[in-house]
Structure formats: C-alpha cells, structure tokens
Amino acid sequence: MIATQGLTHRYHSKKGVLSHEIVFPDLAVERGESFLLLGNSGSGKTTLLHLLGGLLRPLTGKIEIEKIDIASLSETELDRMRGRQIGFVFQRNHLISALTVKNNLLMAPFLAGEKQHEERVDLVLDELGLREKKNAMIFELSQGQAQRVAIARAIINKPSLILADEPTSALDDKNCDQVIELLNKVAMENNAALIVATHDHRLKSRLKNQIIL
C-alpha cells in the first residue's frame, strides 16, 4: 500500500548555519497491517509521518502510495490524494472549535471533494460511542472524547492509510487503551494500513510490528 525508499530529510537550524540530515529506514506497509513507529522526541517520527502523508517533500528518496510516486503529483493533486486516501490523527488541538462535532466530521468529505452523507456520520459516531455528542461543541468534550472524534474524522472518508501522531500521549491509561483499541479496530474494519508514531511505552504491547527510529 505504502512503500518508501531511501528517504532523507534535512533540518535547518534557525540561522541556517547548522543543518543536519536524517536518513529514514525503508518502509513497506500493506492494507490491514499496523505499525508502531517508536522513538524519542526529536528522532524524526513526526517528520516521517508528514513525509508519508505528503505534508512535506523529502530531500531525497521515493514514496509510493498505491503504486503512485507522490513526488510526481502536483500540489493540488497531492491535496486531493491526501483528502481521499489518508486519515490523520494528531495529538491535540485537532478539531475546529468553531464547529459542532457533526460539522467537524463533515469537513473531511467536504474538503476532500466528496459527497457528504449524514448517515455515514451517524454510523461512525455510533461505532465510536459518540452518538449523543453529535451536535455538541468541541469545548464540551473531554480529551478522550475529542480524540475519539478525531479518529471518527480520520476514517469517515474510508481512507486506505491512517497516520496517527502521538494519539495517546495526552490521555490517561483508560482512554489510552480505548483509543489505541479503536484505532486498531477501525483500521481493520476499513482494511486500511495504520501507522502510529509515539514515544508512549504503553502502546508497545499493543502493536506487534514496530520500527524504531
């Protein structure tokens, strides 16, 4: 589903004098597979995730998503691909606070240029146990609920790849368990590839496939 070859990225320090390169190991993840991307802060987990999601262009190397080299895509095509194929889950601040839960979810198909089905919203919210929060504002949610809404938003377009960046590090043990379980479950159900970047050791026992940066 997604495969990388010889990815490197160059970090620039503020003055541009000091810069260092980071070389990422090659990856190959198929649909239905899940991977844990482990590493300490600053080891480049987020950068790799952004490279995979097309939010950042690599210095060298190649990323193929469904056999398409994403370097060959224009900026607009990349935006389109991202909207339809990839679901992102971030650590926090990931929901648009001016909108209700329902409208936050509908943003995903709207921005990806796909039809907006309210039944799909109901279905996904049901699955994540958030039915009664459909018309709630974001500030009315707890952190665990907000993270579940973010997962709902990531999967509403039925993506083939789910990229999660530290999805559990702001959560307590109970919510952490729930979130990683849900992520796993929805990825399996949608037959999507799942890559979770984290330094959260609680997750180590949850996903077998691990890459350490």
Binding site: R84, N93, L111, A112
Partner: peptide, 16 residues
C-alpha cells in the same frame, strides 16, 4: 493557523 493546517491535512487546497 492550526485549523488551517488541519484543513490542509484533510485535503483542502491552498486556494480554498
């Protein structure tokens, strides 16, 4: 800014 970055990650184009 964060909202916008999120929207971009969901497929919004710059021109949108």
């Amino acid at each position: 800014r964060y909202d916008m970055a999120i929207m971009r990650s969901m497929g919004a184009s710059r021109s949108l």
